[in-house]
Design a binder for these strands. Structure first.
Lengths: 249, 249
DNA sequence: CGCTAGCTTGAAACCGGTCAACTTTTGTGG
DNA sequence: CCACAAAAGTTGACCGGTTTCAAGCTAGCG
């Protein structure tokens, strides 16, 4: 079973400048800004381990695996999900580059869900005990961890509300867009790296409903979808639809 | 506007034994176990501020209020919720004695939702900057904070899945039961401190549906409800129903 | 080429929501 | 303590958004 353990990335060496160790990691920027001295930053650097690539369909961790590390997505998309007794899949989230997986495993010391690569995925792995220990010496890092955890509570709360299919779908598209934009990608044209079924299981819909909502949104000129490619053509209207879901974001 | 700020509890003095400052607070036990010396425990103690009582219907904080503190419920029940554009209320959670509110406010430095007392509520308030600072000197406390945050991600994820009314209701009752049991109350007989409408808005149902599910559960012998009093009569069956929701708990 | 997984579309069924009427409880003031 | 009003809860009938079922389509790939 593959997991977030030892598997160095071929071709990505850790030997370079210690202060550019991982441009996409959620920790680097925050900690660089905090003006720590070189020795502490070096401590952070030696914690990082680049692992992957995981290819499409490969599991990064599975429900019940012992928790040892959190990981920032460096490239690709990760889906987390659980499967219930009836075999229905419940998608908990999609993680894009720069986002951190595994935070919900801390409380149980086990991963409570499965994580699978939706395309080619490379991760930055952080041993949790080590980064927690370092955080006691770097208040900025501790603060960053608190923030990330708190953020995930908010994320999980978002779609738990009582919203219509249209509202949830609009919110899904808008948040995807914002997250891509935050990473320097186009906010209005991007690739859906997940299947319709994945989207459905995330939004608590049937995949047929996802198809139909896409079609209706397209007929109404709000989006243009062609297979996995999507273009947001009327952001304003989408934001309006998503408004109820996204308030407090 | 009332908020989690200065309002000492009349009759509850902070002058007593520093190591029994708050029997219900989520931090005390963990930190006592960690074997810290007296001076650090005293630091933790002076952070605690008992506030309240808030009486039924009174707000503890409101959406958008600047975040300064987290708080452990000492007695009573707190409901957190947001209201959307159409005036629909979305209940995010109920907090029983021993549970901590405000953790989802860290990332934004503002409370993302409203918190209201469902009955008479007393809180232990912890200034967040102070407790975070202290956590750098008490790794056990830091760990406890990480755990609490991580736990809340899991809680928020639970009901976000695609479950039937029956499954969600059963899960709601079972978790309530477990939480009361963990605090030394009866797991099979307790008071629903929230209205049917609150339950409905939490479970994404109509209040009429809550009524009907209660009635059906009762007709099937799983529970006995009389107004706000409830008794779980067939725990096993409820657990079975809740199973899908609660896996990974 | 043909297979398969993913996707789309239509028709019918159903779960839960909405609307409305009514009952019960709670709270208030005389 | 009672009268009354307001809030909470219950129940029934109907409606509608989503799901389910079924069929067919499309793209990607061996």
């Amino acid at each position: 079973m593959s997991d977030v353990s030892r598997r160095p990335v071929p071709g990505i060496a850790d030997d370079g400048d210690a202060f550019h160790f991982c441009s996409t990691c959620a920790f680097s920027a925050a900690c660089l800004e905090s003006g720590y001295d070189k020795s502490l930053l070096r401590d952070l650097h030696v914690l990082v381990e680049h692992i992957g690539p995981f290819h499409e369909g490969e599991h990064i961790f599975r429900e019940g695996d012992p928790f040892t590390a959190i990981a920032a997505v460096r490239s690709g998309t990760v889906k987390t999900y659980v499967t219930d007794h009836e075999g229905r899949e419940h998608v908990q989230g999609f993680f894009l580059p720069g986002e951190v997986i595994g935070l919900n495993a801390i409380s149980q010391a086990r991963y409570p869900s499965n994580a699978i690569a939706l395309d080619s995925v490379v991760l930055c792995r952080f041993s949790f005990p080590n980064i927690a220990a370092l955080a006691t010496r770097m208040p900025g890092l501790q603060q960053q961890l608190f923030k990330l955890l708190s953020l995930d509570i908010g994320k999980a709360t978002l779609l738990s509300g009582n919203f219509s299919a249209d509202e949830r779908m609009a919110a899904f598209l808008i948040t995807l867009s914002r997250r891509y934009a935050a990473r320097g990608f186009s906010p209005n044209r991007f690739l859906l790296t997940m299947t319709r079924t994945d989207i459905a299981n995330y939004l608590r819909l049937a995949s047929e409903t996802v198809s139909r909502v896409f079609r209706r949104f397209q007929d109404e000129g709000m989006i243009q979808v062609e297979r996995r490619e999507i273009e947001l053509k009327d952001r304003k209207q989408l934001e309006t639809l998503a408004e109820n879901v996204l308030r407090s974001t």
